[in-house]
Design a protein around this nucleic acid. Structure first.
Lengths: 341, 341
DNA sequence: ACCACGATTACCACCGGTGTCAATTAGATC
DNA sequence: GATCTAATTGACACCGGTGGTAATCGTGGT
């Protein structure tokens, strides 16, 4: 099992009877190189199974081949989708993916991120929501000289370095969809306070009602925490109302499913007695019964785009459509016309 | 925004009026160094905010500070738990975590893993189930000279480099628990074929029955794929049996919840008409109603242990209890005595 | 055959650390 | 104060690549 000593560029150079630099040119596909030598070097490389040492390359180039996802998001499905998207974005390149969670509530969050970046010096980082909403963290990345892209629920304060999806519009469409089905009393389960995405989603909710000439009834709006339990709690409160809503929009799927459970416990039939729309399009949403009509949030696409942007050569910074990815409404079985009883 | 040029060891050396080597000693907490110089160097480091370049260190030490999780596992919660555990395991060190998914069914899986390892040269890798069960992949890591630890559902062919949990025993206990409650007709929803963990779980199931003097009835054993849908399908088949079981053990929580749904569709009450036990203790299991009695699989602990083992100094290879982590049964609300009707 | 010139290739320094070993310094002993 | 030994510190090569520039090669023109 002897120590497997990796061949180095010097070994290749010696065997191919060329200088290291020439080998380096072959590795980097430099055009100023004759076909003959290229072939010769390539055959030596193949023969001894040479792979350039990434650490040496990183040192010489003063850049690494690693991108990192920095997050503070407890949702497993979200994270996995992000990772999948980023991996798609770097597929076929020499880049690898690191993950680094941080604690949003820690007072040392900035120091922690700085620490991570300085300790690993990744080529670039993707800041995931909700920490992507803190401009000082983006600033920090800039100061540290590391490229970064933020993933957001909406154009943040500055569009630069941001891949986003328009939550407000998505929710407006979803709620309009309920209205088109004839619902006029529509409940809302909000997300946690203090972040942009829940705010945007609420704004979209209100815009849809207003566009249809409906009044926003505060009694139908309940706070939630993006957790299943908070959905149950809020759902229960809503269905126990004297004048209960005929439909509910929940700011994420987990809460929507919580509402389903709560409604059923109260003897309501879904969707006959209560239509429900969620947000995220998690796998779960198609597993529950009835399957959940929900807003498909293009996480994978966003993450893929973010990763691509990150590793794109400087100067490719064209902004525009590609940085703002569309959501869409996935119509399943949890919405019907309201009961006319 | 000028280019943020990182101070290097040379800057520190110059400012502190010592050689780079001395600075290096300070960084590495070498004992052969006078307190006076150490203090002086440290103050310079603090002043200019010097952080050693990880790539240069990696090159000189011929080892870098990255561990990677290599997986082929579609389950989001599992992955996130593993990541959490590994991050706990490397917390406080200079190590970072990379993730690399591979495709179990791809014929190039070995080449893909080799590619990843050679391209990134991580310090070590953790092979997650189910690919951890393929001995040739562990072999590959050994050949490539990268440290590795496998996470398994049981002692695999060789205990070396393996952190595991005894699934067979866990399932035996879970099924015995059902038997103790008076169940004698117990259904089993299996996991996918071809992997160790489902096999072990089935073995545990049979052992429990045999230990209680019960016969294993093939009619009560249904294949599953670890997915919610497969649980629904199998559950439906079971409850439609003429002589249906009074309890079901499903090889993971998702399928267990599928069984719940299927049973309810057929008009059965859970747990009164059908007791259910799952495996994994995913968050979902406590969210469903009734909450699911399930086997807690110590993923986080296993991953933490695996990461620690990976970065432990050579020679720390003591085997034993720490490498085999205990599962436990989490008693919730999905198990009661069988109906005597 | 000779020269200019572009295409190839080699040489050497350098990226920012660490290992080795020699040189220097300090403290102890007589 | 001289000598010896142990404790500190420094000089230099090296890890395995890349950049810049000089040297060499081949070719066409005259």
């Amino acid at each position: 099992m002897g120590t497997p000593i990796k061949p180095t560029i010097n070994d290749v150079a010696r065997l191919a009877q060329v200088s290291k630099k020439t080998v380096s040119r072959v590795i980097n596909k430099s055009p100023l190189l004759s076909d003959k030598t290229r072939k010769r070097v390539e055959s030596v490389i193949a023969e001894i199974g040479y792979v350039p040492n990434p650490q040496a390359r990183a040192l010489a180039l003063r850049r690494n081949f690693i991108v990192a996802a920095i997050h503070d998001n407890p949702n497993a499905q979200f994270l996995v989708n992000v990772q999948q998207g980023m991996l798609e974005g770097i597929a076929g390149t020499d880049f690898g993916l690191m993950v680094q969670p941080v604690d949003r509530n820690s007072p040392t969050i900035a120091a922690d991120i700085r620490d991570f970046i300085e300790r690993q010096r990744p080529y670039g980082v993707v800041l995931l929501p909700p920490i992507s909403e803190k401009p000082e963290l983006a600033q920090l990345c800039g100061d540290l000289g590391v490229r970064y892209v933020r993933m957001g629920s909406v154009k943040l304060d500055t569009a630069e370095h941001t891949v986003s999806s328009n939550d407000r519009e998505a929710v407006r469409r979803a709620v309009s969809y309920l209205i088109e089905h004839g619902h006029t009393r529509i409940g809302l389960i909000e997300g946690p306070e203090g972040f942009t995405s829940p705010r945007e989603r609420r704004a979209g909710f209100e815009e849809a009602l207003e566009a249809a000439g409906l009044k926003v009834d505060p009694a139908l709006i309940w706070p939630g925490k993006y957790t299943f339990e908070s959905g149950v709690t809020a759902g229960q409160a809503l269905v126990e109302l004297k004048n209960r809503p005929t439909a509910v929009f929940a700011c994420n799927d987990e809460m929507a499913i919580g509402v389903m459970i709560a409604a059923r416990r109260s003897g309501l039939a879904i969707p006959e007695d209560l239509s429900i729309v969620g947000f995220d399009d998690t796998p779960l949403s198609s597993h529950v019964w009835p399957s959940l009509t929900t807003v498909h949030w293009p996480i994978v696409d966003m993450a893929r785009t973010a990763a691509r942007k990150l590793i794109a050569p400087e100067g490719d910074k064209e902004t525009g459509a590609e940085w703002l990815l569309p959501s869409s409404l996935v119509e399943r079985d949890s919405v019907v016309k309201p009961n006319s009883d």
